[in-house]
Write a protein that binds this DNA or RNA. Structure first.
Lengths: 137, 137
DNA sequence: TCCATGTTGAAAATCAATTGCTTTTTGGGG
DNA sequence: CCCCAAAAAGCAATTGATTTTCAACATGGA
């Protein structure tokens, strides 16, 4: 949370109730959360949904959260750890939507080859796995 | 086109102007097209956008087109070749949106490991690369 | 404490995609 | 070649996620 404060201050952004609440909610959830889910986790006098959308953009720009796309038209966010760029992938059950974090990543050498072959710079990737979880089989 | 006819007939679906036009447009475009792009490529008395949306669902279900998601909230489609499941990936320029087809794929062995480790069945993946193309650097 | 500026709430606006419903087409049968 | 039921298209309205507008409000440095 101190990280949040210093980073926000560094950009003359303010520490507000909604922002702190959002980070608190993300901190206690191990999986990517949709804005609506964050919204419904909001304690009591919850804030406006638009505020959550705005906050997520801010936090994403600051590199404090990472956006994930499971292809269902809903953006989900995860807190990014201290010394971590948040780059990782997921295995999602197409039946129940259970999400498992995946440690494996696309091989760097191959990515470099792809970049070189096409003369692209700054190449990254988005990768998510889909399947049927043990409970849904 | 003959494939289209036989496949459509086989499911008591009809061969209509809009469907033929859509496939014709996809055939002459080597890259994934958004529904709106297909719409604007429509000759003269173009059909309704809703018809394109409905047709894409049908063609996707029939395995004649493949849906791709570049993370910008717009679905794009590509024609699937005869003896091909259409599974491949793209390298997209984040500046000008140029798209290059990528032959490389996520290593099967690793995908199998991921599936096994988590006891998931029927695991597949969505993978797209992003970077800056030669012209935009 | 005061003030400039960043933020929020609330409602309206966007945008892609979907759906309801009426009118047209398509294609097998006569 | 014409008829008809079913499939498909046109068109308008709707949904859902996300964004924006704008007035009211809160934060933090002076």
């Amino acid at each position: 949370m101190s990280t949040l404060k210093s980073r926000l201050r560094g950009q003359s952004k303010r520490i507000t109730g909604p922002r702190a609440a959002i980070l608190e909610i993300l901190r206690k959830h191990p999986h990517p959360l949709a804005n609506k889910e964050i919204f419904s986790e909001m304690p009591a006098g919850h804030c406006d949904l638009a505020t959550i959308y705005r906050s997520m953009h801010l936090l994403e720009r600051m590199g404090m959260v990472k956006r994930f796309d499971f292809g269902d038209g809903v953006a989900r966010f995860e807190l990014v750890g201290e010394n971590d760029d948040g780059h990782h992938h997921h295995l999602v059950c197409i039946r129940c939507s259970e999400v498992v974090e995946v440690d494996e990543c696309f091989p760097e050498e191959i990515e470099r080859e792809i970049a070189a072959k096409n003369r692209f710079k700054g190449v990254t990737h988005k990768l998510e796995f889909f399947g049927i979880c043990p409970d849904c089989q």
